[in-house]
Amino acid sequence: MAEAANVRQNLQNVPSIFEISAAETLDNLIYPALSKVFDYFGLRLDFKLWGQLHFREEFSPVVTWVLQYLYLRKRASSFGESFYGLQRTDTKTGEPLTRPQQFKSATLLTLLPYIERKLKARSAHHEETFSWESHLIKLFHIYNASRAVHTFLYLIKYSASHSPIFRALRLTLRYPREPPTEDKWTYIFLKMLEVLAFFLQFVQWWYSNDQRRKVGGTLQNPEPMPERQLPDEVKKTLPKQGECPVCLLRIQTPTACAVSGYVYCWKCIVTYLKEHGSCPVTDYPITLDDLVRIYET
């Protein structure tokens, strides 16, 4: 009881759960916003490892980790926590992060949401999953339940940490005792990144599903890839109206690509997408979320 009373006394002037939640929301916004930007410019890692194993991934996780580590090094807080004036400190001593804690914090801030997002995407698209992936999804459910418990204990001022990750790293969020000491160029650079947060929010809003449905009717159908490089005998084999551009047969189970507007067979476009990650006609980057089944009435 005496220990619990001491914890309550030390938690009088601490950030509210609403500020912490807002900071976490801003941190979780970085990855999807960067993904949209990199997809727009076509920036991806794309190569074959061996045999039929194809590696195709984006730069977003790497850039997210670098950004988070930079803020943890300079301000002892993540991007979102710095934006709301919070700082990570040691639970017992109240000192800023050590170098190992900075590295662990940046890695966990980037890796855990990335893995959970990938697992949920594979499960939602009914892709073939391994048994260890199912176990990982269950572990994430347990972790989220543990977060809810820690949040409640923090809310009633019974715990110094609002999440199991902070408890494991022996960290807590506090208001900084004094403004961070930075050189002029570092200060300007970090301020520019904070201003960039509003741009990231705008990008996320613009590419949201609801907004895409609102403006989708005003978008022009993109032009296909140029045919001038194709021989005449190949041009004669191009698909006619009602034929799938992939298999060149009558379309079965018509499926439209929301990005380009072209229609394919469901099996053809899914198979092509898994290998190339782009529209077969326009070569625009697409995902399974961009495919829309067409039902005739």
Rank of each mutant, 00 (worst) to 15 (best):
Met1His: 01
Met1Leu: 05
Glu3Thr: 09
Glu3Leu: 15
Ala4Glu: 12
Asn6Ala: 14
Val7Cys: 10
Arg8Trp: 05
Arg8Lys: 07
Arg8Ala: 11
Gln9Thr: 13
Asn13Lys: 04
Asn13Glu: 07
Pro15Leu: 01
Pro15Lys: 00
Ile20Cys: 10
Ser21Leu: 08
Asp27Met: 02
Pro32Asp: 05
Phe41Ile: 03
Leu45Val: 10
Phe47Asn: 01
Leu49Ser: 07
Phe55Glu: 11
Phe59Leu: 13
Phe59Pro: 00
Ser60Arg: 00
Val62His: 06
Thr64Tyr: 13
Thr64Gly: 10
Leu67Arg: 01
Gln68Ile: 03
Gln68Cys: 10
Leu72Asp: 02
Arg75Trp: 01
Ser77Lys: 03
Ser77Ala: 14
Ser77Tyr: 01
Gly80Thr: 02
Gly80Lys: 00
Tyr84Ser: 08
Leu86Glu: 03
Leu86Gln: 01
Thr89His: 10
Thr89Val: 13
Thr93Asp: 10
Gly94Tyr: 00
Pro96Asn: 04
Arg99Ile: 13
Lys104Arg: 14
Leu111Tyr: 00
Tyr114Phe: 14
Glu116Ser: 06
Phe130Met: 08
Trp132Thr: 11
Phe140Lys: 01
Tyr143Leu: 05
Tyr143Phe: 09
Asn144Trp: 11
Ala145His: 02
Arg147Asp: 06
Thr151Gly: 11
Phe152Ser: 09
Leu153Ala: 05
Tyr154Val: 00
Ile156Lys: 04
Ile156Gln: 07
Lys157Asp: 07
Tyr158Leu: 13
Tyr158Thr: 07
Ser159Met: 05
Ala160Arg: 06
Ser163Arg: 02
Pro164Arg: 04
Ala168Val: 07
Tyr175Glu: 05
Glu182Ile: 04
Lys184Ala: 12
Ile188Tyr: 10
Leu190Met: 08
Lys191Asn: 13
Met192Arg: 03
Leu193Glu: 13
Glu194Leu: 04
Val195Ile: 09
Ala197Leu: 14
Phe199Gln: 06
Phe202Tyr: 12
Val203Ile: 15
Trp205Tyr: 09
Ser208Leu: 10
Ser208Gln: 09
Asp210Arg: 13
Gln211His: 12
Arg213Trp: 12
Gly216Glu: 03
Gly217Ser: 14
Asn221Leu: 15
Pro222Lys: 07
Pro224Tyr: 00
Pro224Arg: 03
Glu227Lys: 09
Glu227Arg: 08
Leu230Ile: 03
Asp232His: 10
Glu233His: 12
Lys236Leu: 14
Gln241Ser: 15
Val246Trp: 02
Cys247His: 08
Leu249Asn: 15
Leu249Ser: 15
Leu249Thr: 15
Ile251Ala: 09
Ala258Val: 11
Tyr262Glu: 06
Tyr262Phe: 11
Tyr264Ala: 01
Cys268Gln: 00
Cys268Ala: 02
Cys268Met: 05
Ile269Glu: 02
Thr271Val: 05
Tyr272Cys: 03
Tyr272Pro: 01
Lys274Met: 02
His276Leu: 13
Ser278Met: 14
Ile286Leu: 12
Thr287Gln: 13
Leu288Ser: 11
Asp289Met: 03
Ile294Pro: 08
Tyr295Arg: 12
